[in-house]
Design a protein around this nucleic acid. Structure first.
Lengths: 206, 206
DNA sequence: GTCTATAGGCTGATAGAC
DNA sequence: GTCTATCAGCCTATAGAC
């Protein structure tokens, strides 16, 4: 026993060192700085060696982005204990914006940079990937509100339309602030409060 | 008369040929393809000659982006004839999303790529640049609604907070669709209808 | 003003030795 | 598996001839 498993383990070890190094480069210098040479330098291998572990640079970028979705899902964890669906949604929305603003380069990679990378992780029908899980964390409380009759949403598509409305709002806050930090001038906490208030006033029946 | 003015005119002519070529490259291939060599090839000059007209590549990118803001402002023009502030806002919001989706590479350059380029055009106190004009096109109808007592907005900052809420919403729709064209699945016309309905239900007093 | 030539970098990816 | 060496490009920007 052992030799095969040990080698597989060592291989995984090196792979994760590569992804760790790549993540550090992206976080500190942005996606544009993610080159095979820089990664190789960081893990103290030759650039050629990296290709034994990843087919190309894109595959490494996808691995880093995938980690980002895991982190985002983790950022949602505390909110999930809230029973009240509105409170949960609001906590998730704030966690989302907070995640994006505190991990700007990761967020850019996940949602603003290369559609191919984003598609590789979000466009799959697989309902167990972290990206879809994060999405469902938004959909579920909305479905609950619909069930309770608190909002108007006859079918599944209507529930998802409202969830997507919330998603584009928080994504809009993050992505605009990342590219235009000073204009518009509304501070981000005021902006998110206004957006949340407007959203709930807009969807809740009265 | 003549010699000095003619040279200035010719100079402007070449400058605008350069910007036109740069815009075509961005529109057809994206910002990453905007290189001095490609621009020079398109205008049939040597790369070195371009530096007689622009200090560097960034200055050309700023000029292209600036044109984008002019185009955006033009896209708003038809909406401005609408007297009803809500109808005007809704028309502007739809024009905004339409502009972003039909000019994806220009939109990326304006709002999703390089914060330096965006700042060069948006962060100035100058209230006459097209970017600020476009922003004011959103602020004004909101101020009107506030004046009419249709919404709750005591002061200027509150008006701007609501305007910014609308802006991040439409920006969120465009920028998410540009990077994730297929996920979320809500079609863009349904999404914008939901977002507009939610926004107005959310801000209008009843 | 415009050119050629070039400095001085950078990139992803691969062949072939060990 | 890992290396060195290299292919085959790409880039911005400038010096200096004309």
């Amino acid at each position: 026993m052992g030799a095969v498993e040990r080698r597989a383990r060592q291989r995984e070890e090196v792979r994760s060192q590569i992804v760790d190094a790549a993540r550090d480069i992206v976080v500190n210098e942005g996606y544009h700085a993610l080159t095979m040479r820089r990664i190789a330098e960081a893990v103290e291998y030759s650039p050629a060696a990296i290709y034994q572990y990843f087919q190309n640079r894109d595959a490494i970028a996808v691995a880093v982005t995938s980690e980002g979705f895991v982190q985002l899902l983790h950022a949602f964890a505390p909110s999930r204990s809230l029973d009240n669906p509105r409170a949960r949604l609001e906590a998730i929305a704030r966690a989302y914006v907070d995640f994006g603003l505190t991990n700007p380069q990761t967020y850019r990679l996940m949602f603003m940079e290369d559609p191919e990378i984003t598609r590789a992780l979000l466009a799959q029908p697989d309902r167990n990937d972290p990206g879809t899980q994060a999405y469902l964390a938004i959909v579920e409380p909305i479905a609950l509100l619909a069930q309770q009759g608190a909002i108007d949403a006859r079918d599944d598509a209507s529930v998802r339309a409202i969830a997507d409305t919330l998603w584009v709002t928080v994504h809009g806050i993050v992505s605009l602030k990342l590219t235009c930090p000073t204009f518009p001038e509304t501070p981000v906490d005021v902006l998110i409060a206004s957006a949340m208030r407007t959203f709930f006033e807009g969807i809740l029946k009265r």
